[in-house]
Design a protein around this nucleic acid. Structure first.
Lengths: 214, 214
DNA sequence: CGTCATTTTGAGGTATTTCAACGAAGGTGG
DNA sequence: CCACCTTCGTTGAAATACCTCAAAATGACG
């Protein structure tokens, strides 16, 4: 978000917000609690999830730097957000933000753009999760990370800040299925794990092909 | 969208827009074509879809009255939109809309709210599609319709403007699986089909239970 | 270096997909 | 008005892929 803002807008936003840094596993807010603020991730990674009556947990989205989160529905947060590792984010009280937006259509436009991107990403995910094959789903997950992570590292190497089980909850698979998918992709030399949280893409074109043929 | 706008805002929006009415199966715009306008559904129903390299078609969302569609990505539409039946919608050129939004933060806020709702709906869908059971997916689909269709009819009877095969493409199932799911729900007296496009909910609580235990 | 959590691997059960054929509905033309 | 055709919907049977349960291996951390 901040990238395209004018210095003045940045200043206003920052003046409204509280910068917060927390360790991993910190819960930013819980599903159903009154929504008083919205948030922007500055550094780190978080997950947004919901626990279902059946006991299963579904992860709706992973959040990375520049992502906006905490948009309410009827004044309450619709899911729980928790940090995956040490994370810095800005907390902006809605009461303070709303009047500013009312005054600054440009700034509001940035928020609109941001939410539109989130919408696209959610649609992409629905597409990915609709696939039968576990490998196909996992590859789309990698593609999603490629798009969102811009940590300088050359896109050939990706950091996965989340566990296999969290990936499974995101993709609607069992964690065993995720493990078998990564195993097969590794055996076929498409990817290679430096360690469980660092993957190297060996055959980008093959990956693209698997992702494409939905 | 229009519901909450002031008369003046409605007037402005209408003055910018072209009201269009078309028969079923009319393509409003195609994936990848330059995006010059956004649209608001006024009456009827449409589908937004993408054809995948594999030949399969995935429906991203169904559109009903008051729904906004045609938000571009990099100046191009990201999917194809087609009417399911006789439909009326408003076409608003972006070039004309943008300056108005720049002047009217309130109006822009409505768009922001609208897109946020779309985002929620997309997330809900991703959740639904993540389910293993075909019956579970179909029930969530019915719930989605209940939320969106407000055609006075008492929520006990729902009109499905789309075909089984379109429902399948939306849920990520084969159309046979959809057919078997509806068949089973019918046999168990949870729903009843007056005709293939009109369903009556017989056991609302049972339906809720199936939908809940994701 | 030991303990706990995470990840991987194995075998059987179950649900959906696929392939195929049948039945029903709607539209068209004779 | 009926025959024909195309689309849509239903049903059956075998193949496939994931889920569950269970146990072993690896990695993380104090």
């Amino acid at each position: 978000v901040r990238r395209l803002l004018t210095p003045r807008q940045q200043k206003v936003l920052i003046s409204l917000s509280t910068k917060m840094t927390t360790d991993a596993r910190h819960i930013v807010y819980r599903e159903g609690s009154p929504a008083g603020s919205i948030f922007i991730c500055s550094d780190g990674a978080l997950k947004s999830f919901r626990d279902l009556p059946s006991g299963k947990r579904r992860i709706l989205t992973f959040l990375f730097p520049d992502d906006l989160f905490g948009l309410a529905e009827n004044g309450r947060y619709v899911n729980t957000v928790q940090t995956l590792r040490k994370t810095t984010y800005y907390r902006i009280p809605i009461d303070a933000l709303t009047p500013v937006l009312r005054q600054d259509p440009e700034l509001e436009w940035h928020f609109l753009t941001k939410v539109t991107h989130e919408l696209r990403e959610a649609q992409r995910r629905a597409l990915a999760v609709g696939r039968r094959s576990a490998i196909g789903r996992f590859v789309m997950f990698l593609k999603m990370l490629e798009r969102r992570i811009t940590d300088g590292s050359s896109r050939e190497q990706l950091t996965l800040p989340m566990s296999r089980s969290e990936i499974a909850d995101y993709l609607g698979l069992s964690l065993e299925a995720v493990s078998r998918a990564t195993g097969q992709l590794t055996r076929e030399r498409v990817i290679a794990f430096v360690n469980p949280h660092l993957v190297r893409v060996l055959d980008q074109s093959r990956l693209d092909r698997i992702a494409a043929d939905l």
